[in-house]
Amino acid sequence: MARTAVTDRHGELVAYRSVPFVTRLRRDYPLLVMIVPAVALMLLFIYIPLLGNVIAFMDYVPFVPFLDNGWVWFENFERLFADGDFWLALANTLVFTALNLLLFFPIPVMLALFVHSLLHPWLRSFLQSVLYLPHFLSWVIVVGFFQQTLGSAGVLNQFLAQNGLDPVNLMQNPELFKFMIVGQTVWKEAGWGTIIFLAALTAIDDALYESAAMDGAGVGRRLWHITLPGIRPIIILMLILRLGDALSVGFEQFLLQRNSVGPAAAEVLDTYVYYHGVVAGNWSVGVAAGLFKGVVGLILILAANKFAHLLGEDGIYKSTRR
């Protein structure tokens, strides 16, 4: 097999512009065969049904034959963009995403490093197999726990009352709601989030630690020079993927607490869509909002990836011209 391609610093094939198509096909067909099952599944269960999303441009009702639904083109989008509540929900969503990135995102990484640093194998696996458990509780139960602990009639306030202190209203305070949400998310999902980073840590060559230790590198320097760079690509990858999902911050968690703090604090895009699409009997509005989320996600992913390239990282896809 002729291997005349240009390679980058990783020794990966980079530029093929000069290589004829037939040669490339002959050389790459095993790779194409490997991706056939995935492409087939995506076509059948995502791309073909995605054609149904044209209802974003219709006045759609599922109870009449499809073509009896009139085309309204961009009216659904115009309705969304003309609605102040939509922008409120969008702004709230972005605030929650930002808080999530700042306050939640680093925690699984730190937890993973902590688990990783435990010497005793039994303690390590014990902690590891306990941390992820809250992921399996539903939001109804998690919010219930928070209510029973921090709510107005909860354990904390009972304690304060018994000691003659003023009660604190944590669960119905729109100002604190942002942090309650982050707190709940940390409790439920941080442990589960460590798993991917633990996997990344295993992929660091032990020999690197050994030689660093030999060279007298202390624990801090080993963390800084070996561990973190070793999992950096995965951290960046997770960050970019999270950005692609930036307009989804959760649904049930917000719906459950929306009444306690009010929509001004708790309305996010998904609850907005629920009330304006589902409850309001407007299927098209929901799909239109979904398309909007996808487009925004795409832009964010592309931008984040570009940014990663500027920092010399690979991101999701590599820059082909380096």
């Binding site: 149904g52 999303n53 209802i55 599922p62 999530n100 939640f104 995102f105 699984p108 992921h135 109804v140 998310t185 439920k188 999902e189 941080a190 589960w192 989030g193 798993i195 991917i196 997770m238 993927l241 999270r242 999902d245 989804s248 911050v249 959760g250 649904f251 049930e252 968690q253 719906l255 459950l256 998904d270 869509v273 629920y274 699409g277 589902v278 409850v279 009997g281 299927w283 929901g286 799909v287 909002a289 979904g290």
Partner: peptide, 28 residues
């Protein structure tokens, strides 16, 4: 919602298109 949860499509689909009262029952 966590960053690391598998993005189960069903939730998004739920919101993307059809009517759904799945979560709402107890709420509403």
């Amino acid at each position: 919602m966590s960053d690391f949860q598998i993005p189960t499509l069903s939730r998004r689909r739920f919101l993307a298109g059809s009517a759904g009262l799945a979560v709402s029952a107890t709420v509403l």
